[in-house]
């Protein structure tokens, strides 16, 4: 019995951080992803030649046990049509506990771009994989939305 105790203890010690890692919730939340025209009117259907303005909001909880605020983060907004990435917006900033930060920008839809449904993906990371290596992690669940591009 004694010889079993030691490996069992090590197994439990190995499993605890692993379970914590898989169960961990993210410290930030993407609370808004909205598409607008350049005058600020919300819309989801655009014509080629127009600019799709994407506005987002990231919120931090007033108190969170697993992260220390203010928290540095990298926010990425991408525009996709199938496997083509047609736009990329990025920012790096800092957020305090209980704060909400806005970020957005316009992506021009070229006259040569295809018509159809475009996907918008929004990520909040602690940095780029090339910078963070194995310490890379998302800081908020990704959010997606879509727009339609007509002729």
């Amino acid at each position: 019995m004694k010889e079993v105790k030691k490996p069992a203890f090590i197994l439990v010690l190995t499993l605890i951080p692993l379970l914590t890692l898989t169960q961990a919730t993210y410290p930030l939340t993407i609370t808004k992803v909205e598409t607008k025209d350049y005058t600020g009117v919300p819309k989801t259907s655009f014509r080629r030649g127009e600019i799709a303005v994407i506005e987002t909001e990231v919120s931090a909880p007033a108190a969170y046990y697993y992260a220390q605020f203010p928290l540095d983060y990298l926010q990425i907004i991408t525009l996709w049509h199938g496997p083509s990435m047609l736009g990329l917006l990025m920012t790096r900033t800092k957020i305090s506990a209980g704060e909400t930060k806005s970020f957005g920008g316009g992506i021009g839809i070229r006259l040569t771009d295809p018509i159809g449904t475009y996907g918008i993906e929004v990520y909040v990371w602690n940095g780029f994989p090339s910078e963070k290596g194995a310490a890379w992690t998302p800081l908020a669940p990704a959010r997606t939305t879509s727009i339609t591009v007509t002729g």
Binding site: L21, P129, T137
Partner: peptide
């Protein structure tokens, strides 16, 4: 560059 939250890079 690829990095995963649990298994690393």
């Amino acid at each position: 560059y690829v990095s995963c939250e649990t298994s690393g890079a």
